[in-house]
């Protein structure tokens, strides 16, 4: 690791101030991606600004038909929260299958979505459930938030405060994971929401998480596995790497989508 200065703000305002004044500051959430990245010297920030002591960024609450999860809430907390399990069990299951147990005890939802790894799980849930990302200054819809590989709509000094998930009618997430890294080779989140059906795919897209409008339309008309049989996603826009070819990923999108629909019951 290269050297850096460490800052420990107690409020969001202090964190924003630290971020503005540092020559090249980076926010430290759970650190489960950032620290391995620093260990490999793939990044060289001047300052790490640790968000762990800001109480306003933590916790899970229910506001009417919306589940609100603070940015610094750990995956293990989401996985075991009675509120999440009762309202969006698919989200609890997704959180409980991220990485391994030790990663889930440290990793956070805010860190995951701000990083926007193209094979991460939470982006699929955000897009599938039409979540809204609350930052220190605005609200960003999931459709606008995830812009490209490791890129989001967040500006340089913006901090994710919470993610707001509308409670769906039903939803499920199916992941075909890489057995070593446990990242999704393909993960599909299917949700029947009050305003329509969404199908969000992670792990496969060359530009990160994406929706499949043809499947959404078919499922809106008939929410059954048969409705999406034969709907293929174009291979041109999919990743091809040592883990899986674009052709294989395209196949897996169909399989995982049908399994997710079946799991919705």
């Amino acid at each position: 690791m290269y050297e850096f200065d460490y800052r420990r703000p107690n409020t969001l305002d202090e964190a924003l101030e630290a971020l503005r004044t540092a020559p090249d500051g980076k926010l430290l959430a759970g650190g489960q991606t950032l620290l391995p990245t620093l260990k490999q010297r793939l990044a060289n920030p001047s300052d790490l600004i640790d968000l762990a002591h800001i109480q306003d960024l933590k916790g899970i609450s229910v506001e009417g038909d919306t589940l609100v999860i603070g940015a610094m809430t750990r995956h293990a907390e989401v996985a075991t929260s009675p509120d999440v399990r009762a309202r969006i069990p698919a989200l609890a299951e997704l959180a409980g299958d991220i990485g391994d147990r030790q990663v889930r005890n440290r990793g956070t939802i805010g860190g995951s979505i701000a990083n926007n790894d193209p094979a991460a799980d939470y982006p699929a849930a955000c897009l599938g459930l039409n979540a809204t990302i609350t930052t220190d200054r605005r609200e960003i819809g999931a459709d606008d938030f995830f812009t490209d590989l490791f890129e989001t709509a967040l500006v340089e000094d913006e901090v994710v405060v919470a993610v707001r998930f509308p409670v769906p009618v039903r939803a499920a997430y199916m992941k075909f994971k890489n057995p070593a890294s446990r990242y999704a080779i393909v993960g599909v989140f299917v949700a029947q929401n009050s305003d329509g059906v969404r199908v969000a795919v992670t792990g496969a897209g060359a530009s990160g998480v994406f929706r499949v409008p043809e499947m959404e339309a078919a499922l809106a008309a008939d929410f059954a596995t048969g409705a999406i049989e034969g709907i293929a996603v174009p291979q041109d826009d999919l990743n091809s790497d040592i883990h899986a070819s674009a052709e294989y990923r395209a196949h897996l999108v169909g399989v995982m989508a049908r399994r997710a629909v079946a799991a919705c019951g």
Binding site: Y6, R8, L28, G31, Q32, L35, P36, K39, L48, D50, A52, Q102, V103, N105, R106
Partner: peptide, 10 residues
């Protein structure tokens, strides 16, 4: 927790 993926200061 994996103590190789946490800083002492944390």
């Amino acid at each position: 927790v994996k103590s190789c993926t946490m800083l002492a200061v944390q």
